[in-house]
């Protein structure tokens, strides 16, 4: 996909995210929007996956360690053709298969159940390890929040991946700078994120603007060429990206828009799509 197509797809996914959260009357738009571009890039450019055959053995895997970004994941999967886009409106409804956090048992294309922060990266490490043990050549991508890396389990997993040289593992940190209680540096600063992953024996790729497809493209190409160590892509993003009143606001971490807000958000995204 070229850059323009990726941008268009990401814009559509943003509309899906906002619509799904609006329909659910709850959910996590902020982080879903900050990560919408990288997830679009993964599903529409980078990963070897097939929506017709979601369980094929040699597929690349994606684990959404920051599981509360389920709206972004579901929107990508729906747009990719894993299930009907229309179903996104059932998000978080009683009886819907689209649970508040990703559920691998019931949702085609979800490679790992997640939602409890810090755990997804371990599962991703397990998948990458399994590929190494049984000589398979798929790759495993996992997306973490910057607040999430305060969890000790992230460093258990990082230490393991570094020690075992899992170069088929790509850890992506969505550094939007905000967590529920506020700015991550005020709550319990995980900075310097880059030095931490480097000290845990990762090849670290810093991305200045994780909402820019050129920069993402460059980073993932570099990741592909990395040999002998796991990769951490630490990308600065804007929380709530694409919806003016949600941008850079911790308050939009886990809140649904009301009718007026929804209307405004969709108008803005519509306009962005035409540009």
């Amino acid at each position: 996909m070229n850059k323009e197509m990726l941008q268009k797809t990401a814009n559509q996914i943003r509309k899906d995210i906002v619509t799904a959260v609006y329909s659910a009357k709850s959910g996590h738009p902020g982080g879903s929007l900050s990560a919408a571009d990288v997830m679009t890039y993964l599903y529409f450019e980078e990963m070897n996956v097939d929506p017709k055959n979601p369980d094929k053995a040699d597929r690349d895997r994606f684990v959404l360690s920051k599981g509360h970004n389920a709206p972004a994941l579901y929107s990508c999967l729906a747009e990719k053709g894993y299930f009907p886009v229309e179903d996104l409106k059932t998000l978080r409804h009683t009886g819907s298969y689209l649970q508040g956090h990703p559920d691998m048992k019931h949702i085609p294309g979800v490679d790992m159940t997640s939602g409890s922060l810090g755990q997804g990266i371990s599962a991703a490490v397990g998948m990458a390890l399994s590929a190494k043990l049984f000589n398979e050549d798929y790759r495993v991508f996992t997306l973490l929040g910057d607040g999430e890396i305060q969890e000790g389990q992230v460093w258990e997993a990082a230490m393991f991946a570094g020690a075992k040289k899992l170069d088929n593992l790509i850890v992506i940190v969505d550094n939007n700078g905000l967590q529920i209680d506020g700015k991550i540096d005020d709550v319990c600063s995980p900075y310097p994120i880059i030095d931490k992953f480097a000290a845990f024996n990762f090849k670290v790729i810093a991305v200045e603007d994780g909402n820019d497809f050129d920069q993402l493209d460059k980073a993932f190409n570099e990741a592909r060429l990395t040999d002998g160590q796991p990769v951490a892509i630490v990308m600065k993003t804007v929380k709530g990206k694409g919806v003016s009143f949600m941008e850079d606001q911790a308050g939009w971490h886990g809140k649904a828009p009301n009718d007026d807000e929804y209307k405004q958000a969709m108008e803005e995204l519509e306009k962005a799509g035409e540009a």
Partner: peptide, 28 residues
């Protein structure tokens, strides 16, 4: 030796790794 993995003293991570391995059809 190739199918025995020492995860070090990090049990939470070990359980997660086991989960990840299980998703690939192996039995940890």
């Amino acid at each position: 030796p190739d199918r025995h993995i020492d995860c070090g003293i990090a049990e939470g991570n070990m359980m997660g790794i086991a989960a990840g391995i299980a998703t690939t059809g192996k039995v940890p």
